[in-house]
Simulated assay, not measured.
Amino acid sequence: MRRVEIGRIGKSYGMEGGLKFRGEAVVFDLKKVYLEGLGYRAIEEVAELNNEIVLYLTGVQNRQEAERLAGLRVYADPDDLPRLEEGEYYYFELIGRPVFVDGQPFGEVVDVEDGPQDLLIIKARGSSLRAQSKTYMVPLQAPYVHIKADGIYIEAIPGLLE
């Protein structure tokens, strides 16, 4: 099964093995996570403290054990993620989808950049090296971006793909 990255472990928190977590809030809905190189760990508790997420994992009982985990990537199994409403997607579901501009094949989504305005990172198709190395950033929530079962359709507006 392909796991999806949902965040990273930050610094330790407190003396009882708390771990600051930088990533998706979906961690509140999970019972377990996969730690990079270490395997699965059950989640004992997830707390939000001072606008930060703090995880307490089985087997991490003190500050020293927590400090050893700093920087590790955190993954979840897709089947463990909560079901989304119709028309909503997890970012990993968009990566690899074909992109069409004005109905014509254009490229594919290679990443989604999370931020105040989420961006699709699109790698263009083309026969030249220049075309193959070019990437475009398109706002995901823009009214001219339509996600369908067979791909992502973009209505070109002036300056968008230049």
Rank of each mutant, 00 (worst) to 15 (best):
R63I: 10
G71P: 06
Y40D: 15
E162Y: 11
V4E: 13
N62W: 08
A76G: 10
Y56H: 10
I152M: 05
E65Y: 08
G7E: 01
R73E: 09
Y90V: 14
R2M: 14
A47N: 12
G87W: 03
L69F: 06
A142V: 10
A25K: 14
D77P: 03
A66L: 04
G10R: 08
Q141G: 15
D114N: 11
G159M: 01
E52N: 09
L55S: 02
P105M: 12
P98I: 02
F28N: 05
E113M: 06
E52S: 12
E36W: 05
E5K: 05
L57P: 00
R130C: 05
R41S: 10
A25F: 13
A42Q: 08
I154D: 00
E86C: 04
S133V: 13
D80F: 14
F100G: 02
G18A: 06
Q132E: 15
I122W: 01
L119C: 00
V101N: 00
H146N: 14
V26G: 04
L35N: 01
A66M: 02
S133N: 04
I147P: 03
P116Q: 08
S12R: 12
S128E: 08
L69Y: 06
E88M: 15
A142D: 05
L19M: 11
L94A: 07
I152H: 04
P78W: 14
P78H: 13
L35F: 01
K31E: 15
A124S: 15
K148W: 12
G71M: 08
P116T: 13
Q132D: 03
D118N: 13
G126S: 07
E48L: 13
P116E: 14
V60R: 03
N50V: 08
R22S: 10
R83C: 05
G115P: 05
G14C: 03
G159S: 11
G71Y: 13
T58S: 13
I95T: 13
R41W: 01
F92H: 11
R125V: 08
D80H: 14
G151D: 04
D102R: 04
E108G: 07
N62V: 12
A25S: 10
Y89M: 04
R63W: 04
Y13G: 00
K20D: 06
E93Y: 13
L119T: 03
F28P: 00
D150S: 05
I9T: 05
E44V: 01
A76P: 06
N62I: 11
K11N: 12
Y13V: 01
Y136K: 00
I152V: 11
G23M: 11
F106V: 00
G18S: 06
Y40W: 15
V33S: 02
Q141M: 12
Y153V: 06
G107E: 01
N62M: 10
H146S: 13
V112H: 03
R22N: 09
V112N: 01
P105Q: 11
E85N: 08
I9L: 13
R97W: 07
Q104W: 09
D79N: 12
L81V: 10
